[in-house]
């Protein structure tokens, strides 16, 4: 871009400066109230105490182990869900009869809150890591699946007509129209899957077991260790922000051809 008028540093980063400013302001007020002993450490905590606890848990405690444990559970479950969701979604979306067979079953499963299945999953997989992996899987699987099926079904009739007129075979239509057309839907599914998978891993670890960030939050609550609890909450929030941001980047990367950017 040439000829763009010069922008000052503030103009260029106005959004980041205002957004960051509000967070800094809030943290400052919170810390001031904490220092003034206006907050009971039994029910809440202060930024400095949380930071101190985070450093302690990282250097002396088991924070590294908890992060690794939760991270592994999430990664395994999510990758499984992404692969299964996309593959099954493409098949169900492409084959009409398969869709008729699978639709009622999938809708019923989709409508069931996954949290309700956690006790059952614990019975199946025990309280070890595989129950968590499976909870992440089942949480992330459905959004990926439903969006992929939606993408396959939303084939543009005009494109289909054009492909047919140029003698395209079913396989060619699948490759050149159905799959590329589904990519934005699949990526939306993955983004939703990331968010739900993250909830899955936290809730799963709260329910059973003795490790992970979810456990850390639950344990902090049970022992009135509010600073530990907040370390966990902030880690989960940060993970959510980073993963969603990555998923959005990926979405944008693959929808380069979209006119509205």
């Amino acid at each position: 871009m040439t000829g763009r008028p010069h922008q000052s540093f503030y103009q260029r980063y106005e959004g980041a400066i205002l957004g960051g400013g509000s967070i800094v302001l809030l943290l400052g007020l919170w810390e001031a109230a904490w220092q003034a002993k206006m907050i009971s450490p039994l029910f809440f905590s202060g930024p400095s105490a949380i930071a101190k606890q985070a450093v302690y848990a990282w250097t002396q405690g088991n924070l590294k182990g908890d992060l690794l444990y939760s991270g592994t559970n999430f990664t395994l479950g999510f990758i499984g869900a992404a692969i299964a969701g996309v593959v099954i979604g493409i098949l169900v979306g492409w084959y009409r009869r398969l869709r008729m067979l699978a639709d009622p079953l999938l809708n019923a499963l989709y409508a069931t809150p996954r949290v309700a299945m956690i006790p059952l999953i614990l019975m199946w997989f025990g309280i070890g890591m595989w129950s968590k992996v499976f909870i992440v899987f089942i949480s992330a699987f459905f959004p990926v699946l439903v969006n992929t099926v939606g993408g396959m079904r939303a084939i543009d009739r005009d494109l289909l007509r054009a492909a047919r007129a140029f003698c395209a075979s079913d396989w060619q239509i699948f490759k050149t129209v159905a799959i590329p057309g589904s990519v934005p839907f699949i990526l939306t599914g993955l983004r939703q899957g990331v968010a739900l998978g993250l909830i899955g891993v936290v809730v799963g670890e709260m329910f059973g077991g003795s490790q992970g960030v979810g456990f850390m939050v639950a344990y902090g609550g049970q022992t009135f260790a509010t600073d530990t609890l907040f370390v966990g909450v902030f880690i989960i929030a940060a993970a959510g922000i980073v993963l969603t941001w990555l998923a959005e980047r990926l979405e944008r990367r693959f929808s380069q051809w979209r006119p509205e950017r």
């Binding site: 543009d156 005009d158 494109l159 007509r161 054009a162 492909a163 007129a165 140029f166 003698c167 395209a168 060619q172 050149t176 129209v177 590329p180 057309g181 990519v183 051809w257 979209r258």
Partner: peptide, 27 residues
């Protein structure tokens, strides 16, 4: 035969060259 459609029905994810090649690639 080749058809020029009322709606351009171009593949939005293909470049212009990719779209011009499309009919040839299919055939």
């Amino acid at each position: 035969r080749a058809v020029v459609f009322q709606h351009s029905s171009l593949l939005p994810w293909r470049t212009i060259t990719g779209n011009v090649r499309y009919g040839m690639e299919m055939q």
